[in-house]
């Protein structure tokens, strides 16, 4: 990974939206006035959720609000790789390139992304997409996978192939919302071809359950 730099083209100004203000209020409430600088990470996160990235004016705004030096905010924003220092597309594809995903074909996904969207870190012409490579997102059982961040939230798309990856990108461009989760149709990370263990339906209907007396429960609650 090379050094992250803030974007050369920066907007003139930045202001928090109404929804963001609500969230800011919630976070600032958590810290005493004298320690409000503790809210710097949530604040950066809110700014990123709003704009898709953290611009320099946003860092200044946050520094002003939290009464801390600008450089301290910039230190935090550049330290954590989850803060985008350059504009991102409406849908940001975060492609896992760590060993399990890489072994299962992350390189193919990269190729698809590069073909369909453009070079890494660049926003596509229509502004809808951009992609980046990230470190392990912890879904190794469903490798290879990407996380797609947009206004609707951050969702995992797992068990990808070049083909399914391409389809997801096409769907996003078309304005559709592809279904998150495994793209092979399996549930969570169950074995290929369906579950082979814990298949007995009785396990789930409560018929096998034994009554357990929990310690430290009030008799009143037990009665109910």
């Amino acid at each position: 990974m090379s050094a992250r730099k803030i974007a050369l083209d920066q907007p003139e100004s930045f202001s928090f939206s109404k929804e963001s203000e609500k969230e800011i209020k919630f976070w600032l409430n958590k810290y005493p006035e004298a320690k409000k600088a503790s809210a710097v990470i949530p604040m950066l996160w809110i700014a990123q959720k709003q704009e898709g990235w953290v611009s320099e004016p946003a860092m200044r705004e946050i520094a002003d609000r939290l009464d801390m030096p600008k450089i301290r905010v910039m230190e935090v924003a550049t330290f954590y790789t989850m803060f985008n220092l350059e504009p991102a597309g409406e849908h940001l594809i975060q492609l896992c390139g760590t060993t399990p995903c890489w072994l299962r074909g992350a390189e193919d996904l990269k190729k698809v992304c590069a073909e369909k969207i453009g070079p890494r870190g660049q926003v596509s012409a229509d502004g809808k997409l951009s992609w980046m490579e990230v470190e392990c997102l912890g879904a190794c059982a469903n490798a290879p996978m990407v996380q797609i961040a947009n206004k609707a939230g951050d969702h995992y798309y797992e068990d990808l192939t070049a083909e399914t990856m391409g389809r997801i990108i096409d769907d996003l461009v078309a304005g559709k919302t592809p279904k998150p989760g495994s793209q092979t149709g399996r549930s969570c990370s169950e074995a290929e071809g369906g579950s082979m263990a814990l298949t007995d339906g009785a396990l789930y209907d409560g018929s096998l359950a034994k009554k357990v007396k929990l310690p430290n429960t009030s008799p009143k609650k037990e009665k109910a």
Partner: peptide, 14 residues
């Protein structure tokens, strides 16, 4: 006058 800081992390720290 806190104007100097360390950006980035690890081997990219500046």
């Amino acid at each position: 006058s806190p104007e100097i800081g360390m950006l980035n992390r690890g081997e990219d720290a500046e």
